[in-house]
C-alpha cells in the first residue's frame, strides 16, 4: 500500500473534495442569494430528464467547473436501453 502510494498508484482525495464543494456551494448559493445560472440549468435538465425516465441517483454524475470567464456544467446520465417511455411516464 505504502509502496503503491510512493509510486503514485493512488490519486489524492483533494480533487474529489474540490468537486463536491463546487457542486454543493452552487446549490447553497442559489438558495441564499441570487439564483445561480449553473444551478438552475442543473435542476431543470434533471427535471426534464426525469419526466421521461426514472433517474437512478447513482447513475447521474453532475460536474461543475467554474472559471473566471467560462463555466462548465457536465451532466452525465446513464440511460438504460429499452426503456418504455409510456411505462416511465406512468411511473412519474
Amino acid at each position: 500500500m505504502n509502496l503503491m502510494r510512493l509510486f503514485g498508484g493512488r490519486a489524492g482525495s483533494a480533487p474529489v473534495a474540490r468537486e463536491r464543494l463546487q457542486i454543493l456551494l452552487a446549490h447553497e448559493r442559489g438558495r441564499n442569494g441570487a439564483p445561480d445560472l449553473l444551478e438552475i440549468l442543473r435542476a431543470e435538465i434533471l427535471g426534464v430528464v426525469s419526466k421521461h425516465i426514472d433517474l437512478d441517483p447513482d447513475k447521474v454524475v453532475v460536474r461543475m467547473d467554474r472559471g473566471k470567464f467560462v463555466s462548465m456544467l457536465e451532466v452525465d446520465i446513464e440511460v438504460p436501453n429499452g426503456v418504455q417511455r409510456s411505462m416511465t411516464m406512468a411511473a412519474t
Partner: peptide
C-alpha cells in the same frame, strides 16, 4: 496539498 491529499490554495481561492 502537493500530493493532492489536501485542498490547495488555488482550489480554495477558486471556490
Amino acid at each position: 496539498a502537493a500530493r493532492g491529499e489536501m485542498l490547495s490554495i488555488d482550489d480554495i481561492l477558486e471556490i
